[in-house]
Simulated scan of single mutants.
Amino acid sequence: MEVTSYLNWNPVLADPTGQRQAKPRTLGKTMVMDKGLGPNAFQDMLSIGSSHLDMIKLGFGTSPLYPQHVLKSKINLAKENGICIYPGGTFLEVAITQNAVDSYFDMIVALGFNGVEISNGTIEFNRKFRNELIMRGLDEGLEVITEYGKKGWGSAIELEELIETVLLDTEFGASLVTIEARESGMGVGIFDHQGKCKDEEVGQVLAAVSGQQLLWEAPLKSQQVHLISMLGSDIHLGNISPDELIALEALRRGLRSDTLSLGTRKE
């Protein structure tokens, strides 16, 4: 017998919060960090979770380590699923130290990347050069995501500097500014050495800039739960492990005990 219709979950079960935007969304974006998924694992991730995934970062400088046909396949699959895919910002920092910025941009455009991350988490460069990199990315037709923060253990947020960076980066055309937390989520940025969030600093940042401009790296479940509970399910979150993509979406929708109260509807 031919099936002519599909079963659909009751909306109050699929999204108890009733707030989750469909793609392309402006709120609640999720960025997954890919540190070396094989072709099958990458395709599996997209087949079950592409509707919940907005950005994929190929961590640090892993991009040139793939067989080129595998890399191109990843890029094409991501774009077919409405996802921004880009190399990690550290790779651009390598290009800067090797005086190969032009070659870097030429190659990522030729390969088909549709995004670029601009950071100075390891090296130093001035504001003028940062602006030039943002504009170069835009001129190449790429979505520009910038990053604030140093990668060293114990690196803290300089609030005035962060606020100024967000305001200037977005003024020059960056779509989001990522708040550094590395893949460990400990002893960096808004997280202390135990991985706990520095709530007072977060509040001071959000008093000065829009949360819609910020992508919070939060690799640990405890951090995701805390930030969602504190700031709402529509915050942008990054450095999510591929195997935590669906679990994070459940947190956003109040489909886990940690955030079930988000889905409480008032009669």
Rank of each mutant, 00 (worst) to 15 (best):
T122Q: 10
E244Q: 14
K150L: 11
G195V: 04
K221I: 13
Q98H: 10
I85R: 04
G112A: 08
E147Q: 11
L111A: 04
L46F: 07
K266P: 00
E183P: 02
E80W: 00
N99Y: 11
D15V: 09
L260V: 12
M230R: 15
T30K: 02
Y148K: 03
S175H: 10
G141V: 07
G211R: 07
K128L: 11
G61C: 10
S233T: 07
A208W: 01
L162A: 11
A100V: 05
K74H: 14
I145F: 13
Y6F: 15
P11K: 12
D15W: 03
L231H: 03
N76L: 10
G203E: 11
H193A: 14
S222C: 10
P64K: 00
F42N: 09
S103R: 09
F42E: 05
S261R: 11
S233R: 13
A207L: 07
P39S: 13
E132Q: 15
I123D: 00
H236D: 09
N120C: 09
G141E: 08
C197V: 15
L142A: 07
N239R: 09
P219W: 07
Y104P: 02
L231E: 04
I96Q: 12
E201M: 14
P16H: 05
I56L: 07
L159D: 06
F113G: 03
L214T: 03
V166N: 06
T62E: 03
M135E: 13
L71K: 01
S257G: 00
G189H: 05
A207R: 12
H226Q: 09
R182I: 07
A41D: 15
Q98E: 14
E143H: 11
L262Q: 08
G112R: 00
G137H: 04
K72P: 00
I157K: 06
R127C: 06
E180D: 08
T97R: 10
V101W: 04
F125V: 03
K151S: 13
I134M: 06
T170K: 12
V177C: 05
I235V: 13
L237Y: 02
L58M: 13
E93H: 02
F60I: 07
F113K: 04
N99I: 01
N40K: 15
L162G: 03
M186S: 11
V101D: 06
K79F: 04
L251R: 00
M33R: 08
E183Q: 13
T26E: 14
E147P: 08
T259H: 10
S210I: 00
E200F: 09
I56A: 05
N8F: 14
L231Q: 10
D199K: 14
G203K: 12
A78N: 06
S155V: 00
V166H: 01
T90M: 12
V188I: 15
I134P: 02
R182M: 08
G49R: 04
T4M: 11
Y6K: 14
K79M: 11
F91I: 00
D169P: 06
A95I: 12
E201Y: 11
D106G: 09
G154K: 09
V144Q: 08
R20T: 13
T264E: 13
I83F: 04
D258F: 01
Q19E: 13
S210P: 02
R25L: 02
V101G: 03
S50T: 09
Y66H: 02
Q213L: 14
L168K: 10
V109S: 12
R130C: 06
K23A: 10
N120E: 15
S233F: 04
S47L: 08
K151E: 05
